[in-house]
Amino acid sequence: MPNKATPQRASKGARILPQWVSTTALLLPAYGWLTIAVFLPLLTMFLFSFMNKTPMGKAPIEFTLRHYRAFIDQPYLIKIATNTLLMGLWTTLACAILGFLAALALVRCTHGARRETLLILILLPFWTNGLVRVFSWTMVLRENGFLDNIWHWIAPAAGSIAILYSREAIVIGLVHGYLPYMILTCYIALVTIDDAIIEAAQSLGARWWVILTKILIPLAAPGLISGAVLTFVPVIGSFMEPRILGGKVGVTMGTVIEDQFTQAFNWPLGASLSFTLLAVTMAIFATFSGVLRRGTGGTA
């Protein structure tokens, strides 16, 4: 029993070298790689966001806070940011409602092998190429596309219901992308709820809506919150989905940032906008870090 409390459970490895040497050797390749590929780039981007222009050619570089004033200097960015946040909220809300109900249906209405198959079927698209899945929606939503054709077949006289190149189309595509994850996190939270708790509530006279609002939703909250965070964060950073499904209305923070790097070639502005987005992301993670750690069952 006492060894549970002892921090040094591992044996004192090879006596030739102190243990920290081998530990470092094991860790260095992976963390060295992450440093070069992720951590140094993020730092460099932070540095770039203060430059007055992209450091190309010989012109001297000056450091400025100008790019962080972009939201004041270019008011249209405020509107784009608002739209981006709204897009995130709608997507997250739709995912939360559909995902919670689907997870509830999985837990309460399916069993055994059938439930396992359903879970795999639900999660499978999540691990396929996101770009291809967004592209596939254009086939469904476009004028004279799949949905339009079905509609014409049901109501031949009615007009087109094609909604490609609209905000709704973007949200549908994003919901399609992140719904499986929300179902998974809600499922993990709901599956641990003991049937006896619900039976106890029923025996005390609770009706279904009381069980839903007083028991199921509070107990599933960690799953709902971690699902919501891990939907909202990538959605407000998305650029390919709004471009493909939104066309001209698909202008978001993500597409503006992408433009700075691929069209306008204003890297410092792109870097500062990226960093602003990163700050928002970090703030969200920090706020919900406690729930995330418990909700997704830890990290390692």
Partner: peptide
């Protein structure tokens, strides 16, 4: 009892703990 050090003593004799 737990935490009395008995397992640590055994692990020292075994050589798992220096």
């Amino acid at each position: 009892p737990s935490g009395s050090g008995k397992t640590t003593l055994l692990r020292i004799i075994a050589g798992f703990v220096a």
